[in-house]
Amino acid sequence: MKRIHHVPGQLFLPGFEAPPQPTDRLFFAIVPAPDAAAAIVRQRGLLRDEFGVTGKPIGIARLHVTLSHLGDYLGLPQGAVKAAMTAADSIRAGPFDVAFDRAASFHGRPRKRPLVLLGGDGLAALAKFQETLGRALEKAGFGKANPHYTPHVTLLYDNRLVPAKVIETIGWTAHEFVLVHSLLGQTRHIQLARWALSS
């Protein structure tokens, strides 16, 4: 399967077809423990009430922290899946704690701004693990990891800009990481494989 590279704002001449839209996404993620996921949903409700955001909430089953985005594709690329699994198999790491203590909107775009949970020192171990996974993926042929990685949990998308706000800390211990197949436009995540984190 061919990886899709989309250039925002790219123009196409009459008579030439626009490139097909990607249908599938692959990424590695950490998924919150059930009690943490419930706390995230409660916190999201408080933020919606306080700031009047009305964007559709992301389903509790799809809440996650992205570790590495592997690409958007037409169809599920088995070669990429196999390479990602090989990289994940090489990881040796123990469980680590994750803690989010702030909420804010990402500024990037004027519409559909992501409202996210963020953290500071409580995400240091997660960031270190992400670097380890990134090196393994680079060896597997996925290119260099994002040097500006910001661990976050996306709660919803909304046009309203929510300022940074301290929240009651939401944390859990990550005992595994997962390879996720996202069906774009269908709000569906399929967990293809899971790897336990053990000392």
Rank of each mutant, 00 (worst) to 15 (best):
V65E: 03
K112P: 00
A87I: 15
L63I: 15
R188N: 09
A164Y: 10
L183N: 00
V81M: 09
V98M: 11
T132S: 13
R92Y: 03
R194M: 08
G45I: 06
K56I: 04
L13D: 07
A38G: 07
Y157T: 13
A145L: 02
R111D: 05
P14D: 07
R188T: 08
T23M: 14
S199K: 08
R48C: 07
K2D: 10
D49G: 08
D24A: 10
V116Y: 06
E138L: 01
P110Y: 10
I167C: 10
L47R: 05
H148C: 00
P20Q: 11
E17H: 09
I40L: 03
I60V: 15
T169M: 12
Q21T: 11
V7A: 11
A193S: 09
A33D: 14
P110K: 12
A193H: 07
R3M: 06
N159A: 08
D49P: 00
K139N: 05
V65R: 00
G143Q: 10
A36K: 04
R25C: 09
Q10R: 14
K2C: 01
I60G: 03
R188M: 09
Y157S: 06
S199F: 02
G120A: 03
L117I: 11
K112H: 13
T154M: 08
A80K: 15
I40N: 12
M1R: 08
L46A: 08
L155N: 03
W195R: 09
D24I: 02
I4R: 15
K2T: 00
Y149C: 06
S182Y: 01
G185N: 09
F142D: 08
L161W: 04
S198K: 07
Q43F: 05
T23G: 12
V162M: 03
Q191W: 06
G71Q: 13
R3V: 00
A84T: 11
H175P: 00
I190F: 14
A196P: 08
F142G: 05
Q191A: 10
T150V: 15
S198M: 09
F51G: 06
R160Q: 12
A80N: 15
M85V: 01
I40K: 00
A61S: 11
F12P: 05
D49H: 08
R92Q: 14
L11F: 07
T66G: 04
I60L: 09
L184C: 01
V31H: 04
L161K: 09
R160Y: 03
H5M: 12
P32K: 02
Y73F: 15
P95D: 06
H69A: 02
D97W: 07
I190N: 14
E168T: 12
H189A: 03
D101Q: 01
V116E: 05
L63P: 04
L13E: 15
H181V: 01
H181W: 15
K128G: 09
V53D: 02
V53Q: 02
Q10D: 11
G15E: 07
K112M: 08
V116H: 07
G185Q: 12
H69N: 14
H69F: 15
